[in-house]
């Protein structure tokens, strides 16, 4: 699903965010990428979603080499991925339904399909009865669930979660992780970027550890090392 080969990225001349990292994520895996602040986790995610370009190396997402992706191809890539962020990134002036629908509307789906799929996704994340609310009328956990529904709405094969529990309390964190596990069980590959030790250890799955831009560990059934 994701094949990273000798990937490097520098900010300016001195800051080496990623240094020659390589790994391979198979379809259907649930992989945690961990590391402390400044370890290069977010840079890696930004490169995967084409928000940044790597200086060197190769990155294949679903068999597509996006190392040198053109600007006009970026929306097509993002429509094949699902991405959730620490700060949810919801559109404040749109309702829950509209936020989720937007991702489909941007792809040109028919109104009827949008209505059906959005309702399904909101049911999956447990927000069926809150579709008319605005983001500021929801709790943090609920907002993150809206973001997950939006990320899943075009049925991506890969879901990238960048610190999805960073702004949540332990109960909501548990709920979001359970939801991600449920989505993974349905066949979606999950890449979870986090520095939450408890979450990583509870998952008992594959853990890739970054430190100062270097991949220091890749364990099939790993634990939080740092």
């Amino acid at each position: 699903m994701i094949k990273v080969t000798n990937l490097s990225k520098k900010y300016g001349k001195k800051i080496q965010a990623l240094n020659d990292i390589s790994f391979h994520i198979q379809p259907g895996e649930f992989v945690s990428i961990v590391g402390q602040s400044g370890s290069g986790k977010s840079t890696l995610i930004k490169i995967i979603i084409a928000e940044l370009k790597a200086d060197q190396g190769e990155l294949l997402v679903g068999g597509w080499d996006i190392s040198d992706i053109k600007e006009r191809e970026v929306p097509t890539l993002r429509r094949q991925l699902g991405v959730i962020f620490q700060d949810y990134k919801l559109l404040a002036k749109k309702t829950v339904f509209e936020n989720v629908a937007f991702a489909m509307e941007a792809c040109g789906f028919a109104k009827k399909d949008i209505k059906k799929t959005v309702r399904q996704m909101l049911a999956l994340v447990g927000l069926k009865d809150k579709e008319d609310r605005y983001p500021n009328q929801l709790s943090g956990g609920e907002q993150q669930r809206v973001a997950i529904a939006r990320a899943l709405v075009h049925k991506p094969k890969l879901l990238v979660a960048d610190e999805p529990t960073g702004n949540l309390d332990s109960i909501n964190t548990r709920e979001i992780i359970d939801l991600l596990k449920k989505i993974n069980n349905l066949g979606t590959t999950i890449v979870l970027v986090t520095h939450n030790k408890d979450v990583v250890n509870s998952l008992k799955g594959r853990v890739i550890t970054l430190d100062n831009g270097v991949l220091i560990s890749d364990q099939a059934q790993g634990r939080y090392l740092l």
């Binding site: 929306p75 097509t76 002036k93």
Partner: peptide, 16 residues
């Protein structure tokens, strides 16, 4: 600007 960036991040094209 955040609204614009979010729209782009969820896969909307420049024109849209």
């Amino acid at each position: 600007k955040n609204e614009i960036m979010i729209m782009k991040l969820v896969g909307a094209g420049n024109w849209f």
